[in-house]
């Protein structure tokens, strides 16, 4: 085998290694690109689906939302979740199709600055026309009125959610 052939094989092999790397990169790129496209076309849909999937994943593991009250959405349904007591008192969040997470971490929809609140503390999400509060395994618990929330529970229209030193209410 001549040295020239061997050198060509050697260079060909290095090219092959990088061909592999670039092919992997192109698969990763198309992966990212496809996701972005899906997001821009149906961003709201995807987000709602993802969050509902999250909620149901949690529910599927053992705790299930209790469909006690099933008000029809419309005239009487709440529009806002308002912090009524605590450091962030007055803060309000519009209720939409997506769940609202509450906790100390900044990534939460409602970030409470309170040492008694866990990083991801609780979640409020729509379920069959009503709003449900679910504790996410917090250290100090989530309370609805004076009852500790152990499984996802429907929030009554006059109910107060207590998390750490803060209180939250649904508003129309």
């Amino acid at each position: 085998m001549s040295q020239l052939t061997l050198t060509l094989i050697q260079l060909g092999f290095l090219a092959l290694l990088w061909f592999m790397v670039l092919s992997v990169a192109s698969v990763m790129r198309s992966d990212l690109f496809a996701r972005r496209r899906a997001k821009s076309s149906a961003r709201a849909d995807a987000r709602a689906a993802r969050s509902a999937a999250k909620a149901s994943a949690k529910a599927g593991t053992g705790t299930r939302p209790t469909p006690a009250a099933r008000p029809k959405p419309g005239r009487g349904s709440p529009r806002q979740l308002v912090v009524t007591a605590g450091a962030q008192s007055g803060l309000s969040v519009e209720l939409g199709a997506t769940p609202i997470t509450i906790g100390r971490a900044e990534e939460n929809t409602i970030a409470l600055d309170d040492d008694y609140v866990s990083g991801r503390h609780a979640r409020v999400y729509p379920h069959e026309g009503s709003w449900v509060v679910e504790d996410l395994g917090s250290t100090n618990g989530t309370f609805l009125g004076t009852t500790k929330v152990t499984s996802p529970t429907v929030i009554p229209s006059s109910g107060t959610i207590r998390i750490g030193k803060s209180e939250l209410k649904l508003r129309k």
Binding site: A59, G60, P65, T66, G76, P156
Partner: peptide, 20 residues
């Protein structure tokens, strides 16, 4: 993978039901 859909249960002893 898709998450399993929640199965509603009728146990609502702790839930305050507000009639509308």
């Amino acid at each position: 993978s898709p998450a399993p859909a929640p199965v509603p249960i009728v146990d609502d002893a702790l839930t305050e039901v507000v009639p509308r």
